[in-house]
């Protein structure tokens, strides 16, 4: 236990915590995305999936709490690291050229905030259903399609998925670096895996609001 506390106290430990929680969330998102694109098969398949999940009853709270914990740890570490970075930088430069960092890496913090806002909205929208125009328990496919009928909502989903993509791109590459996976022979795979997962997950999710906006979702 002391080792864990010791790790958390260090900046490297916080990054490791972000990496591990990030990986867990990536794993969840992959499964979530795969189940979501069932909407392109038909609404009924999604309903079946939803029914299967609800079948677990209160047990469903175990993964939910784990995910919630991961999000909390991820955000807490991010918040603390940002504060340390601000304190560490002290004054700011008149001119600070940053040739090496990518757009994705520089937008991690604000992108993360946007994703948080999105998650809250998303849960209220499709899980709790209180900001849904016509939420019906059990009719997952229908809820999804109806929820996307509002163009501003679909657009918000799309923008959020772009932010998620940027977050993924730097985050996944960063996981390798933070967990010490860096070897010149294999390094090109790190970028490749980051891009691949980004396209798969963010692209997969984004396909739904995009289809809605194009009027292909029925």
């Amino acid at each position: 236990m002391n080792a864990i506390i010791g790790l958390w106290r260090s900046t490297i430990g916080k990054k490791i915590a972000m990496s591990l929680t990030g990986l867990l969330l990536v794993g969840f998102l992959i499964s979530h995305m795969i189940s979501n694109v069932l909407v392109f098969v038909d609404g009924a398949s999604l309903d079946l999936y939803g029914a299967w999940l609800r079948g677990f009853g209160p047990l469903l709270w175990i993964p939910r709490l784990i995910l919630l914990g991961a999000v909390v740890i991820h955000i807490a570490a991010a918040y603390q690291l940002s504060a340390l970075a601000r304190a560490g930088r002290g004054g700011s430069y008149r001119d600070h050229d940053r040739p090496a960092s990518t757009y994705a890496s520089r937008t991690m913090r604000w992108g993360g905030v946007l994703i948080l806002v999105f998650i809250i909205f998303h849960i209220l929208h499709y899980t709790v259903g209180i900001i849904h125009p016509d939420f019906r328990v059990g009719e997952v496919g229908r809820n999804l399609v109806r929820g996307m009928e509002s163009k501003p909502v679909a657009l918000f989903y799309l923008v959020s998925m772009i932010a998620l993509g940027a977050h993924f791109l730097h985050g996944i590459w960063s996981v390798f670096q933070t967990l010490g996976i860096n070897h010149p022979t294999w390094n090109r795979w790190r970028r490749g895996i980051a891009i691949g997962l980004t396209v798969l997950v963010a692209g997969g999710f984004a396909s739904i609001p995009a289809a809605a906006l194009l009027g292909w979702l029925r």
Binding site: R9, S10, T11, I12, K14, K15, L81, L84, A85, R86, A87, G88, R89, R98, P99, A100, S101, S105, R106, M108, H170, W173, S174, Q177, T178
Partner: peptide, 22 residues
């Protein structure tokens, strides 16, 4: 060394890689 580094008030690494370029 990491403990000392942290206690000196440097920020943490978020893998920007600006250090390597500079």
């Amino acid at each position: 060394m990491v403990e000392q580094m942290d206690s000196e008030g440097f920020g943490g690494c978020t893998n920007f890689a600006e250090c390597e370029a500079a």
